[in-house]
Design a binder for these strands. Structure first.
Length: 637
RNA sequence: GCUGGCGUAGCUCAAUGGCAGAGCAACUGAUUUGUAAUCAGUAGGUUGUAGGUUCAACUCCUAUCGCCAGCUCCA
């Protein structure tokens, strides 16, 4: 179709069709709208883009997901322009949009300071006030390289060289600033207003640690100041809920420099830790698991046979004794395999579901350790299902049902399923992987689960289903996992005797529901902000007396709670009630039980919830049903 | 592991080359108190560790350990 002035038909957002001359710009067609870009036949483009063929168009508003992306991408350019104005010697590299914001990497001799960031923000505001129009131009590869080379932007020239030959090269200009970019962008810098630079960090050129280190500045941008403020408030809330901070404040766990990445659980933290395990144990009975206890340290021979020496060596702690090399287990699977091989199995025995809460150790590079979410020493609610190929779909379905029960009990509203496929570094042949991936996909579909494909992210021995939960602040966490494995059974020659009396290859399913207990606890702390549901709260009720004279009665009530299985604590100290309440409040105790002369004389208690709710005086017997309803997993909040 | 920042009392933080301090917590005493902090006093330190510079180091330098933000890795 030629680009003449022949009329073309444009379908507007309302469905209205208009006939306009070819070459009409989107800006004219979407006049008056607050659009910062537009979608033409589903593709996001600049407003200045002329229309040359019949199409359907719709405006992109700054607050839409696509609009935010454009806005943030343009903010990255805005920041780069400000940086170039303030530090002309800096070279620009790349500046993409990321979740919740953007960044731009610069080559700079020194690091940027917080004061630099403030200055850059001020300069950005100036450029916004200048309202420079942002224009796109397409250039030849040679011209682009020459342009950036002449400007001394060698990284940009290098990027052009890596763009596929069949792809056009476009530049975006705003005032004196020009950047290589695919776009699209806002029509002018004045359209960006709500932004904030949030941090600075080192980053490798092209993300490769062998390359030189660049300076990365992070920022975020929103359609309005209000949304920006809300986002910053969310970050503040996340800081308040940080499990490392709450872990210290609530006396749950700590770390010591002599055992980096290895948490010490204090009595209250250990209580919750053990309660999580106890909960899973109770479910195991119903879901048909058998718990086993297996060794911690194995001759490296085992890790050679399992393939861990080939694929996981850099994460294993090794030790040598009597001239023999041992590896501390980073996973339970090889141990469970030895256990399975201890006797001959019939198809009638299967499926066998071996559960193990053993401590695992994985060496993690010092720079990656973080609170409870990335540790070197941890336990999982791990289990391995040994079954026949026919069992796979049912077994995976069973795990999916358990996952859904557990996450419901912890009030995680949203759960996502990812099917992670073969990674580059793996054992086994492609045919086996094809089979395993297809089996997992069938199990998901067969159980009515919708999922996404996460290509290349499987374990080295098999594909897996990763289960991602979203916490109260809508942050994603990978917790549960289901991994299908045809390879370790092969390597260890795991068999069962089939109904036909022949030896058949066993199938293994690796699965964890909470995943690492440490990590899960960290996530849970942040999810509930330290306000544990009653069944997990280390102290469920705290009895607060108004004066000494209620001591005897308070002790009696305390006994009553203890006998009913309620975790009760007494605060008989000679302090004002307000002081005791504040302390219990700070410790996030679910119920404070106030006892004064009134309560003694009427044989009642006055409970107070940790959110401040007052419950009128009632007897312990009358209060108990409320506690009972709440102290079961998934019970009333 | 890499880049940068940080490391002072149990916790949160002061002290920029010249006497290591505050609030909270702890302990002692007074106060007998009604829904988020009563008052007074006492004690608490090899300033992460090891070296160095200096008349003098929390402060400057080197190394090292740990933590934090990222990167890379991992899941």
């Amino acid at each position: 179709m030629s680009i003449s002035a022949s009329p073309i038909t444009v379908t507007l957002p309302g469905g209205e069709k208009r006939t306009v001359p070819a070459g009409t710009s989107l800006r004219e067609l979407l006049n008056g709208a607050q659009a910062i870009a537009a979608k033409v036949n589903g593709k996001v483009v600049d407003l200045s883009r002329p229309i040359t063929v019949d199409c359907q168009i719709e405006p992109i508003l700054p607050s839409s997901p696509e609009g935010l992306e454009v806005l943030r991408h343009s903010s990255a350019h805005l920041m780069a322009q400000a940086v170039k104005r303030l530090f002309p010697e800096v070279q620009i590299t790349i500046g993409p949009v990321i979740e919740n914001g953007f960044y731009y990497d610069f080559k700079h001799e020194r690091t940027f300071t917080p004061e630099d960031l403030e200055q850059i923000e001020v300069e950005m505001k100036k450029i916004v006030a200048e309202n420079l129009s942002v224009t796109r131009e397409e250039v030849s590869r040679a011209d682009a390289v020459r342009l950036f080379h002449d400007m001394g932007e060698h990284y940009k020239a290098e990027i052009i060289a890596s763009i596929p030959a069949d792809e056009g090269i476009s530049l975006y200009r705003q005032g004196e600033f020009v950047d290589l970019c695919r776009g699209p962008h806002v029509p002018s810098t004045g359209r960006i207003s709500a932004f904030k630079l949030t941090g600075v960090a080192g980053a490798y050129w092209r993300g490769d640690e062998r390359n030189e280190m660049l300076q990365r500045i992070y920022g975020t941008a929103f359609a309005s100041d209000k949304e920006l403020r809300q986002h910053l408030a969310l970050l503040e809330e996340a800081k308040r809920r940080d499990h490392r901070r709450l872990g210290k404040e609530l006396d749950l766990f700590s770390f010591h420099p002599l055992a980096p990445g290895s948490p010490f659980f204090h009595p209250k933290g250990a209580f919750i830790y053990n309660e999580l395990i106890a909960y899973i144990r109770r479910l195991y009975q119903r879901y048909g698991y058998q718990e086993v206890v297996t060794p911690q340290i194995f001759d490296v021979e085992l890790w050679h046979r399992s393939g861990h020496m080939e694929n996981y060596k850099e994460n294993i702690f090794f030790t040598e004794i009597e001239g023999r090399d041992f590896g501390v287990k980073p996973m339970n699977c090889p141990g469970h395999i030895l256990l399975y091989s201890a006797k001959k199995h019939s198809y009638r025995d299967l499926p066998l579901r071996y559960a193990d809460f053993a401590r695992l150790h994985r060496f993690e590079r010092s720079g990656v350790l973080s609170g409870l979410t990335r540790v070197r020493s941890f336990a999982q609610d791990d289990a391995h299902i040994f079954c026949t190929p026919e069992h796979i779909e049912f077994e995976v379905g069973g795990v999916l049902r358990m996952v859904s029960e557990v996450y419901h009990a912890f009030a995680f509203e949203e759960v996502r399923f990812d099917l992670s496929t073969r990674p580059p570094k793996r054992l086994g042949d492609d045919a086996t992987w094809d089979q395993a991936e297809a089996a997992l996909a069938a199990a998901l579909t067969g159980n009515g689960v919708t999922y996404r494909i996460n290509a290349g992210d499987g374990a080295f021995y098999g594909p897996k289903i990763d289960i991602i939960v979203f916490d109260a602040l809508r942050r994603p966490w990978q917790v549960a996992t289901i991994q299908l494995d045809f390879l370790l059974p092969e390597r260890f020659d795991l068999t069962y005797v089939s109904a036909e009396g022949t030896e058949a290859r066993t199938v293994m399913i690796h699965r964890a529901v909470l995943g690492s207990i440490e990590r899960f606890l960290g996530v849970l702390i942040e999810h509930c902000g330290g306000n544990f549901p009653l069944w997990l709260a280390p102290v469920q009720v705290k009895i607060l007396t108004v004066t000494d004279s209620q001591e005897a009665y308070a002790r009696k009530v305390h006994e009553q709670f203890l006998r009913a299985g309620i975790r009760s604590e007494l605060d008989l100290r000679n302090e004002k009630l307000g002081y005791k309440i504040r302390e219990a409040e700070v410790q996030k105790v679910p119920y404070m039980i106030v006892i004064g002369d009134k309560e003694v004389s009427t044989a009642t208690v006055s409970p107070r919830g940790r959110k401040g709710e007052k419950i009128p005086p009632l007897s312990v017997e009358e209060f108990m049903p409320r506690l009972d309803a709440e102290r079961v997993p998934g019970g009333a909040p």
